[in-house]
């Protein structure tokens, strides 16, 4: 399943981020290859959020570099990151539940008949594209004019992912895409991620708390703890318990199980 490319699509070298005297990231190296799902795991406060906020242009790193397709880049805004092909799907998805699928799909990037904010929308074309793009990653929208509020959490994830890909994301950052969902919808989202993985040219960074999901879908793992990488490897390299242990930040989760059993 793992991509065969040898060149990483996105890479960080010695990424450091300090907030005043607090060091959130202390020299993080990360390599993400096209066609791969790279699981970024770690306990709360490990620095996952800081890392993805740097990658998506929200924060500027204190030190270190980001390399996209072999070129060192520097983002001063989320728009720069989007322009460089990094699409971030946040937990709240940035969707307006009260308007339609199409309107959300094209929010801020509407297709219009003539330029300017008063350009008439090409509704038909937008409906068609939104439906097609979502179908590509496995969701058939019955009606592109249905309000997003009527969609399930899984479908909303799909909409946000399809949107990011359509608008040029080569690196897709998914921030806990399954955390707020029910079992069935979690599986739906995983299927969607698998579909994107199969495209082969998109690198996916998956932030998750869920070890089972990570093991189901990820090709490669990076474990963060207290701002540093404490372990990494491909899915073949890691044993089940390794993942559990590393996710908890290296502590012996087995001991905890015994303690709780008392």
């Amino acid at each position: 399943m793992a991509g065969n490319a040898t060149e990483p699509l996105i890479e960080t070298r010695g990424l450091v981020k300090r907030f005043g005297s607090f060091t959130a990231l202390n020299g993080v190296d990360l390599q993400v290859f096209p066609g791969e799902v790279h699981a970024l795991l770690g306990d709360n406060g490990a620095g996952k959020s800081t890392l993805i906020k740097i990658l998506s242009g929200v924060f500027k790193p204190t030190d270190g570099e980001i390399i996209v397709e072999g070129r060192t880049v520097s983002f001063s805004s989320p728009r720069d990151a989007t322009g460089a092909g990094i699409g971030t799907v946040y937990q709240d998805l940035a969707l307006n539940a009260l308007t339609s699928v199409t309107r959300n799909f094209f929010l801020g990037r509407e297709i219009t008949h003539f330029p300017g904010p008063f350009g008439l929308l090409k509704m038909g074309e937008m409906d068609r594209i939104a439906t097609e793009e979502m179908a590509k990653i496995g969701i058939n929208v019955a009606d592109p004019n249905q309000p997003v509020g009527t969609m399930s959490g899984g479908q909303r994830q799909t909409l946000a992912i399809a949107r990011a890909i359509y608008f040029g994301a080569k690196v897709l950052i998914l921030d806990e895409p399954t955390s707020a969902l029910g079992q069935k919808q979690q599986m739906e989202v995983l299927k969607t991620i698998r579909k994107v993985q199969k495209f082969g040219d998109i690198a996916i960074i998956l932030i998750t708390h869920n070890e089972i999901h990570a093991r189901l879908i990820a090709d490669r793992f990076t474990f963060l703890s207290l701002g540093e990488v404490i372990g990494r490897g491909t899915s073949k390299d890691l044993e089940g318990d390794d993942i559990k242990r590393l996710m908890a930040g290296g502590a012996e989760i087995g001991d905890l199980a015994k303690e709780l059993a008392v």
Binding site: D92, A94, N96, L98, T99, R103, L107, G108
Partner: peptide, 20 residues
Amino acid sequence: TQAGNWIYSTGGNLQAAKAN
């Protein structure tokens, strides 16, 4: 129009509108 979509999203989910 595009402006209309912006009006709806500004009132519907300000953060989402800004993020987009």
